[in-house]
Computed example of a mutant assay.
Amino acid sequence: MLPAAEPRAGVPKRGQIDRIGARVLEDLVESIVTGAVAIGEYLPPEQALCDEFGVSRTVIRECVKRIQEKGLVEVAQGRGTRVRPFNDWNVLDPLVFDSLVRHDESLGVLDEVSVVRAALEGVMASEVAATGSAESLLQIQGHLHDMRRLQDDNPAFLEADMQFHLSVMSASKNQIAATIARSFFVRPRQSARWDGNNPVDAVPRTLAEHERVFEAIEARNAVAARVAMEEHILGSWRRRRLPDGAHHLSP
């Protein structure tokens, strides 16, 4: 058994968040995202939060540290903990992002996610078309073959779809864009709102759009690859998007 790692010098030891603490953390994030505590306002004092959640000061202090790390608040000595402007929030943080999506009645967050994804993945597809290796193209093509083969198995088809996108990201060698796009690709798929109202011809249409993306990449047409990827991502979201304020549609 390997010895336990020694803490690095100068790095403060993080507190532990148990199940109760995790729930407090989620509730604090939610209160900020929903505007229950609005931007520029202060969280209740420490003792008030202890009383509200029925936990110790240690739990509250650790949770406040966590939401501070997520960019949601700033702690002013002697004044309290104030909610920071939205542009300071780490919206890629899983708790923050999930809360934003869950409470987004207009679906504006997912609309914006789709636009950002389309732009980033469009750029990466064009990079793969211009400079991608033959090996990387074979890998992307393999996932496309899987999509063709698995059209009657929806979960497996969606997995092959995801692997197609992730392979394009990886082949682009653009690590920053890939990291952001991967977050905006994986996290929304865990929300029922992202699934939305899939039309009956969703699978063949999705497959055809991926075919166009790969054909452009294989032809080394960077412009066509970018356009095909952007049209696929934006078009797919428009097809699935629920009406504003709707949580689901009846089958």
Rank of each mutant, 00 (worst) to 15 (best):
M229P: 00
V75I: 13
H248R: 07
V128I: 08
S183Q: 13
M162Y: 11
E127S: 09
T34Q: 09
E26Q: 13
A224E: 07
S126K: 03
W89A: 02
A228W: 00
E30Q: 12
L166V: 06
A178H: 01
M229E: 03
R238S: 14
R149L: 13
L144I: 05
L25D: 00
E218V: 05
K173W: 05
H103I: 06
T206N: 08
K65M: 07
Q151S: 14
L158D: 05
A228F: 01
L144G: 01
G71P: 03
R239K: 14
T58M: 13
S167F: 01
G80W: 01
D111V: 05
D104N: 09
A5T: 08
P7N: 04
R193F: 10
D111I: 03
R102C: 04
W194I: 04
R23I: 08
I60C: 03
A9C: 12
V203N: 01
A118T: 02
G35K: 09
R182V: 05
R212Q: 14
G235R: 00
R102I: 04
R226H: 09
N154M: 15
D161F: 02
I20K: 15
V11T: 13
L107Q: 05
I17S: 06
V168L: 07
L43A: 04
K173S: 10
F164L: 10
T34I: 09
H145M: 13
E215C: 03
A222R: 03
P12Q: 08
V109H: 02
S191W: 00
P204Q: 07
D98A: 11
V83T: 03
R240P: 00
P94Q: 09
S31D: 14
S126G: 15
G245E: 09
C50I: 08
R57A: 12
L166E: 05
T206G: 07
R23Q: 15
R239Q: 13
S133T: 15
P94H: 06
S99I: 03
R220Q: 11
A202Q: 06
V11D: 09
D153V: 10
Q163T: 07
R212E: 12
R240H: 11
S114L: 02
V24E: 00
A76E: 14
D104P: 05
L107W: 04
T58D: 14
E215S: 13
D88G: 06
E209C: 07
R238Q: 12
R82E: 06
A36G: 13
L150M: 11
V116N: 04
D98R: 09
R61C: 03
F97C: 07
R14V: 10
A216D: 01
I67V: 13
D244F: 14
V227P: 01
F53Q: 02
P3I: 08
G35E: 11
I233N: 00
